[in-house]
Amino acid sequence: MIVITIDQRRSRSGPDKVETLLRHLVEHYSTERGFERTAGDEIQGVLSDGAVAVALALDVAGTGEWSVGIGVGAVQTPMPAQTRAGRGPAFEHARVAVERAKSSSGSLALAGTGMEAERLEAELQLVALVNARRTESSAEAGMLVSQGLTQQQVATRLDISQQAVSARLSSGLWYEAGRLTELAGAALHRYSIYMEEG
């Protein structure tokens, strides 16, 4: 199973953003146990789909407002209805990960046992850094492509040439990061199943 713990960054100097994030997560991501506030400005949820977990983690970490910890492992069953009542190694790993995420690349960390956890963390941190370092114009073009528009449609929407769209996507490493994200999601899914089965 995959447990994600998310902690608001610089919460003492800004407003509480937890409720806004909780609404966003409910609207966009499916979970085994929904995200809920566990303490202060921290929330936690349980997922079984690696691809969804990766997309969610990168989405939230990419805002720059949250530290995201992914924990992988078994959970005690039957799982309680409320996330905060859950127990097991996945929850423990998520706690370790979110603490490390506060000073990690891309504000994201992953914890589990074995080298697979380290490899997955490195991949996700790399993607998070690529995402964070894109220019505004590259991010704009990439988001439109990710919504299903063709390069020609993006060019029309942005009133630029198709060559300019291609250049923006290339400079932002959109296809490369997207492929690595896809592979990391599949790998996380396999790893979580393996860890849960022991």
Rank of each mutant, 00 (worst) to 15 (best):
Ser137Arg: 07
Ala97Leu: 02
Glu27Ala: 15
Leu173Met: 13
Thr31Val: 12
Ala94Gly: 10
Glu42Asn: 09
Gly142Cys: 02
Val54Lys: 00
Ala55Glu: 14
Asp49Trp: 02
Arg133Cys: 07
Ala55Ile: 04
Ser146Met: 09
Ala39His: 15
Gly185Val: 01
Asp159Lys: 09
Gly114Asp: 04
Ala111His: 07
Thr77Asn: 13
Ala128Gln: 01
Met195Gly: 07
Leu21Ile: 06
Ile6Leu: 03
Ser166Ala: 07
Pro78Ser: 15
Ile193Leu: 12
Gly62Asp: 05
Gly40Ile: 13
Arg37Ile: 10
Ser171Pro: 01
Leu158Trp: 00
Gly148Pro: 03
Asp159Leu: 11
Glu116Met: 11
Glu19Phe: 14
Ser105Asp: 10
Ala101Thr: 03
His93Leu: 12
Leu25Val: 10
Glu140Gly: 00
Ala177Ile: 06
Gly45Asp: 08
Leu25Trp: 08
Tyr175His: 09
Asp7Ile: 05
Glu99Asp: 06
Gln151His: 02
Lys102Asn: 04
Val46Tyr: 08
Thr38Asn: 11
Glu136Val: 13
Val3Cys: 07
Thr83Ala: 08
Arg95Trp: 07
Met1Ser: 07
Arg37Leu: 13
Ala90Lys: 12
Arg33Lys: 12
Glu136Tyr: 11
Arg95Lys: 14
Gly178Asn: 05
Arg119His: 03
Gly40Leu: 15
Glu136Leu: 11
Ser138Thr: 08
Gly86Arg: 15
Glu36Ala: 13
Val75Thr: 15
Thr63Glu: 03
Glu92Pro: 12
Arg84Asn: 15
Gly198Arg: 14
Glu136Pro: 11
Thr83Arg: 09
Gln151Asn: 02
Ser30Cys: 06
Gly114Ala: 04
Ala74Cys: 11
Ala128Pro: 05
Arg10Lys: 04
Gly148Leu: 03
Arg23Ser: 15
Asn131Glu: 08
Leu22Trp: 10
Ser13Asp: 12
Thr5His: 05
Ser166Tyr: 06
Gly88Cys: 13
Pro89Gly: 04
Ala187Thr: 02
Ala186Gln: 09
Glu36His: 12
Tyr29Leu: 08
Glu19His: 15
Gly64Tyr: 01
Ala167His: 08
Ser13Gln: 08
Ala90Arg: 14
Pro15Asp: 14
Ile160Leu: 06
Gly114Val: 05
Gly71His: 08
Val26Asn: 14
Ala94Val: 08
Ile160Asp: 05
Val18Pro: 06
Leu149Thr: 00
Ala90Cys: 13
Glu36Ile: 11
Thr135Gln: 01
Glu92Lys: 10
Ala61Cys: 02
Thr31Ser: 07
Val60Thr: 05
Gln44His: 13
Gly148Ala: 09
Asn131Arg: 13
Gln147Lys: 05
Ile2Thr: 08
Ser170Arg: 12
Leu110Glu: 07
Arg134His: 00
Leu56His: 06
Leu124Lys: 03
Ala51Gln: 03
Ala109Glu: 04
Asp49Thr: 03
Gly50Met: 01
Gln162Lys: 06
Ser48Leu: 15
Gly112Thr: 14
